[in-house]
Nucleic acid binder design. Structure first.
Lengths: 158, 158
DNA sequence: CTTACTGCAAAAAGTTTGCAACAGG
DNA sequence: CCTGTTGCAAACTTTTTGCAGTAAG
């Protein structure tokens, strides 16, 4: 179990190794990502959170940082189909466990942390000559508790 | 095994039942979708194909038609992360078999027509109180034949 | 006839880029 | 210092919208 500081240190080290610089803006963006690991934030949302402590940061910088982190596989860029890209930390413990439940009623996105697909990946390589490097599994549906209208929307449903 | 005309008839009937009108533009768009079932066309691509036989159609109309078809569950709107929405027919035979292989080398998107997830859906309902209405499974990786640079790109890789 | 549908052009929304100034190592 | 990085504004891309005219049923 790593602390946020440890995890940020690891990410920073990855940046340095690849010849990138640690800047105030990049650290602030990483911090927001680590502090909101459970969420699936959009660039805009990340931007606004970073702005709280760094009012002078530019939106373009956040986009450039997220691009960079995506390239380094520190975050994963996902699109749930609502027109904005969202960004998810890809710490070691999450690897290959990118399963999501999307509730069409309340818009909630829940992460499922189990790897159910190992077997299928073996099959794909054998049968299709396709070597899997990553996967993504998403279930759309609704929670029982949302079937009655009592649940509050957390996001525009997809 | 239904013919294209049969399948289009079914889609048309769905439109009528829901109180929508059958127009030249909607029929042309449906025809393009049925004639290119294997592809995952973007709105722009569909627009250009429709234009071949219907030069006066507007891009906005294609967007509006695709939205409508999506709402009626005649097509599925998917986003592979390359910045454009793509549209997939959702005929009965395909239901619950939306699995894709994305080759990061050549950009090809292949459909896998098997349902591997029944068991998981039962589990989600029991353990999470989540009733699945649809799912989506995507594998990113590369074909063995693409590992050497000999394969030609079919699309900007995601 | 009536109301839904269309084409066009303009607007919106999300993201990227060019550039001069700035700052990390 | 030197080169990567930043903020800003402008550009770009994809999608949506307003509106006056058109056509399906």
């Amino acid at each position: 179990m790593m602390s946020i500081l440890d995890e940020m240190g690891t990410a920073n080290r990855q940046l340095i190794v690849m010849g990138y610089k640690i800047t105030r803006q990049r650290e602030a963006t990483l911090r927001v990502l680590f502090e909101n690991e459970a969420e699936h934030l959009s660039a805009e949302e990340i931007f606004m959170l970073v702005k709280k402590n760094n009012p002078d940061i530019g939106l373009a910088t956040v986009y450039r940082t997220l691009d960079l982190l995506n390239e380094l596989d520190i975050v994963e860029k996902i699109n749930f189909g609502d027109g904005v890209a969202r960004f998810d930390l890809r710490s070691k413990d999450h690897e290959h466990m990118h399963h999501h439940l999307l509730c069409s009623e309340c818009g909630q996105v829940k992460e499922i942390k189990e790897d159910w697909l190992q077997e299928m990946e073996v099959r794909l390589e054998k049968e299709f000559g396709f070597k899997v490097s990553d996967h993504r599994l998403e279930f759309t549906g609704r929670y029982h508790k949302c079937a009655n209208k009592s649940c509050k929307k957390v996001r525009k449903a997809v």
